[in-house]
């Protein structure tokens, strides 16, 4: 596993740099805590971190699931109907001009401090990448495959479901891969704006009390979870949705 080795090497490099900065500048530990202290905090606060990480991960996973499903259905709708395309595409493009972060307070206002405002934020953030990469793939179906199915007497709906959708699954997979990286951002922003649980909430809390080590600990836990999630989804995509190109 070359990837793993490179990852470990890179991590070591970052740790060395981090420690070097502390030694050379003598920066206070409440500004930049040393790696060893952060490691110690992660271990000592493991119960607290686990509790909050579970909440954030629940938001991320539910958001991912719903956002991906929504993107899947929308892309098919867009690809199937020129009318839907003409109506919805400008809205989608315009929606990308709205800074998503600005929506977080409104979502909290509408949906409250619980899970749903964060899940919705996550859905909004991943919806576009999933929809657009799946849609693009659906529009790129080999014309000759469609022609073959037509000659066989297939209806447009069946061509969509039996030819275009399976042909476009690798495009859906690339959308998912992006979504996995974006999803935690949505959840964390949601938590920053208003929450009583989750890693984002914990970071703000720790920051406010100058517990920089705990903030770093939460950040690292979040990063590690994101990487694990990305790896898992990547594996899943490789096994199910990707396909080697036909030579």
């Amino acid at each position: 596993m070359n990837g793993w080795r490179a990852g470990i090497a890179a991590t070591c490099l970052v740790l060395v740099l981090w420690q070097t900065v502390i030694w050379t500048t003598g920066v206070a530990r409440f500004i930049l805590p040393p790696p060893a202290l952060v490691a110690q905090t992660i271990w000592e606060s493991r119960a607290l971190l686990t509790e909050h990480a579970a909440v954030t991960m629940a938001e991320v996973l539910i958001g991912l699931l719903l956002g991906a499903a929504l993107g899947f259905v929308s892309a098919i709708g867009l690809a199937a109907s020129p009318t839907v395309r003409a109506l919805v595409r400008p809205i989608l493009v315009f929606s990308q001009a709205v800074p998503v972060f600005a929506l977080a307070p409104i979502l909290t206002l509408w949906l409250g401090f619980g899970l749903w405002s964060k899940i919705t934020m996550t859905i909004i953030i991943i919806y576009f990448p999933v929809t657009s990469s799946f849609f693009d793939a659906l529009m790129r179906t080999n014309r000759d495959w469609i022609g073959l199915a037509k000659v066989m007497g297939a209806s447009p709906a069946r061509i969509m479901w039996h030819i275009r959708v399976p042909a476009a699954l690798p495009g859906f997979a690339s959308g998912l891969r992006l979504a996995v990286v974006y999803a935690p951002i949505g959840a964390i922003i949601g938590e920053w704006v208003g929450a009583s649980k989750g890693l984002g909430y914990l970071m703000l809390l720790a920051n406010g009390r100058a517990k920089t080590d705990l903030m770093f600990a939460a950040l690292i836990v979040l990063a590690v979870l994101t990487i694990l999630l990305h790896t898992a989804v990547n594996r899943l995509c490789e096994k199910t949705l990707d396909r080697p190109e036909v030579s």
Partner: peptide, 20 residues
């Protein structure tokens, strides 16, 4: 024009599949 995600046998039966 074989569908790369379908087995050889399923490709042979593509007509029935797409006609339902």
């Amino acid at each position: 024009l074989l569908m790369p995600w379908l087995s050889v046998l399923d490709n042979v039966m593509l007509g029935a599949r797409v006609r339902g």
